[in-house]
């Protein structure tokens, strides 16, 4: 089989000598400059981030948040389903037992003493959110900031858990469709009864 037969995109290279006009390169340079100048007056396709930000979808999948419940207790119970669902294996956690007197901090008997997401591994697919049985982890519209140091991309609980202050809570209601919210009201569903 000839080389040309392997792919349809192969080109036969010619070694023909250039003419005088081609040798001085000027027409080619002027032509190139004309194209560049033409682009100066076109509509720009980039934005000047971070001064200008693009509009995000309401259900954009960005940085994760670990939600607290209405009483400010952490919802996460370190069940490990997000970690097992994660296709990038970005999530790790260590569980601990709630001690007497910590009932206002943690919702369940067990909680995550460390919870880490490696944002470099994360592909923001949202499977952790789908796997979560406690509605603890959600993806938000926030994006993960750039940094110079790889270690800083391993986000621990201090970056993931939402603030205790009710005014600073992160709203995830847009991520929950009306059907989901309606389903949650149904007390006949075993999922909704504790």
């Amino acid at each position: 089989m000839t080389a040309a037969g392997l792919t349809k995109r192969s080109k036969i290279v010619s070694n023909k000598t250039m003419s005088f006009w081609e040798k001085i390169y000027l027409p080619a340079i002027i032509h190139g400059m004309w194209i560049t100048a033409g682009h100066l007056f076109r509509k720009k396709t980039t934005v000047r981030y971070p001064e200008v930000k693009r509009e995000f979808s309401e259900i954009y999948r960005g940085k994760h948040v670990l939600k607290r419940d209405d009483e400010g207790r952490e919802r996460c119970t370190a069940c490990g389903l997000c970690a097992v669902a994660c296709p990038a294996e970005a999530i790790t956690m260590v569980a601990a037992e709630r001690k007497p007197g910590e009932e206002n901090l943690y919702r369940e008997e067990k909680y995550a003493s460390t919870y880490e997401i490696n944002m470099l591994r994360c592909i923001f697919c949202g499977l952790c959110e789908e796997a979560c049985p406690k509605e603890a982890i959600f993806l938000t519209k926030e994006i993960v900031n750039a940094d110079y140091d790889r270690d800083k991309f391993i986000y621990g609980k201090e970056l993931l858990v939402e603030p205790m202050d009710p005014l600073k809570r992160i709203d995830v209601s847009k991520r929950q469709t009306p059907e989901v919210l309606e389903f949650k009201k149904d007390r006949n569903q075993r999922h909704n009864v504790h």
């Binding site: 119970t77 069940c79 389903l81 369940e108 008997e109 067990k110 049985p133 406690k134 999922h191 009864v193």
Partner: peptide, 15 residues
């Protein structure tokens, strides 16, 4: 069997 069994599989070590 599930009438009195709590749905705490996320907490339970047996899960």
């Amino acid at each position: 069997l599930l009438i009195n069994h709590p749905l705490d599989c996320p907490v339970c070590d047996q899960a």
